[in-house]
């Protein structure tokens, strides 16, 4: 698959639009889902997806194979989504790099039953900051190793781990809170 993806990029670099069709069909869903998880807005996500694919087309010839194609594409998507967030009106701004300590997070067992409810998990993931949502998405939806996530979001591996740690605490707190309110 990795070899095939690189070949697609090579063909795209030569202006082959059928390669673009194949590439788009292969990556559109993944990239859109990642962007959507960051922006929480389907219109903006469709816009940014177009920007990402346009950049992939224009810079396919500069892909050097230092990372997987998927890492490269998701990295472009990350940066484009961040640009979009920064361009939003101040009132709509999203926290970009929060390292908030979640105090008094509940015991995992308290949040477990809530974590088995898909709607509650979705609600709590939506409450996370953009940076935390990204890491959760890449770790749990894409099943990527922390090193690859660090490449995509452009930060040290340690930062990825601590973001996930804080995201986990925030999710536990949110899920336990929903349980306590009897929303399960």
């Amino acid at each position: 698959m990795a070899q095939e993806d690189q070949e697609l990029l090579a063909r795209m670099a030569n202006g082959d639009q059928t390669a673009l069709d194949e590439f788009y069909q292969q990556y559109e869903g993944r990239v859109y889902r990642f962007i959507r998880s960051k922006l929480n807005d389907s219109f903006d996500a469709a816009d940014v997806l177009n920007e990402v694919m346009f950049e992939v087309w224009r810079s396919a010839g500069r892909f050097e194979g230092r990372s997987a194609v998927s890492t490269w594409v998701l990295g472009i998507a990350h940066h484009k989504a961040i640009d979009r967030i920064r361009r939003r009106k101040p009132g709509e701004n999203v926290e970009l790099d929060p390292e908030i300590a979640e105090d008094d997070a509940p015991n995992p067992a308290e949040a477990l039953s809530a974590a088995q409810n898909a709607k509650q998990v979705r609600h709590c993931v939506d409450q996370l900051s953009e940076a935390h949502r990204s890491v959760v998405h890449l770790a749990f939806f894409e099943d990527l190793p922390y090193g690859e996530i660090a490449d995509i979001v452009g930060c040290p591996e340690g930062t990825v781990k601590t973001r996930m740690f804080h995201a986990k605490k925030a999710l536990m707190k949110c899920l336990a809170g929903l349980k306590e309110m009897g929303l399960l």
Partner: peptide, 14 residues
């Protein structure tokens, strides 16, 4: 317990 919680979260995110 935390692994059980994370597994449930991952399943639902997927």
């Amino acid at each position: 317990e935390e692994v059980a919680l994370l597994s449930a979260m991952r399943q639902n995110v997927k």
